[in-house]
Amino acid sequence: MRLIYVGLLFILIETVALNYYAHSSHYTQAKILSRANSVFGWAQSSVFGVKHFFTLRRENMELSERIAQLEGQLAVYREREANAQTDSLGFQSMDSLLHESISQYRYTTARIVQSTISHNRNYITLNRGLMHGVVEDMAVITPTGVMVGYVVGCSERYSVVLPLLNTDFRTSGKIVGDNNFGSIYWNGHSPYKVQMTELSKYAEIEEGQEVIASGLSHYFPEGIRIGYVDSFTLNENQTSYDVEIRLAANMTKLNNVLLIENIDYGEISHLEQTQGRDGEQGSQP
């Protein structure tokens, strides 16, 4: 008789858990993880700190290379500014261009305190949260400007990132020098490769070409590097390419990241929602 009760309890627990699992999304999972981080985040941070110590040498080299690259870009801007001073019209347009590029995105840095690659739904935890100005929907890139993911949950001191290596991740990408875009996702297999689908068959594509963010997703500014074309095939209907992309970032060895907030995102999102509601109301008889 007792076994019957145990059996019934087993069925009850499994039904509740299965129901919860079936309805859980990356959003609900990130919420749970954010709450857990506010309690256990310090422990994760300590463990990752030890791991981080052994990668400082490589990280310093990467940062030095990045500084050299940015110095080069800065030199170009300085030269343009000096040239523009002789042309007041040119200077004004240069100034407004710089102002626009600065005002749309806000940058901040963070350190990874936990990340996994062995699940289908992987997450990354960062040591920056609401009190540091991190908010949901911020883009996350490496210090060398390569796409990592975007923030889906924040606690006061920590935030949770939905990385490229999560089967729920979606963004829009394109081949450098081509305006056709496709949908980027991860099929859950290799931590070094993601996939792009629905890329028009008219796109000019070759192996080794760089794949970047198209800018159609509100999270990532246009031009953020994703990876390189590894292989491509036409889909079954011969209407678009399915592309295998070798990731530019080694997701297994990430330590520091940059967060980018699209300041216009809230306004765009609000506008789209308003338009959506108006459209629905307009379509009603």
Partner: peptide, 13 residues
């Protein structure tokens, strides 16, 4: 602690 949506509960139970 890992943010999994009930998967470990199902398997462990």
């Amino acid at each position: 602690m890992t943010g999994m949506g009930g998967l470990n509960v199902i398997a462990c139970t």
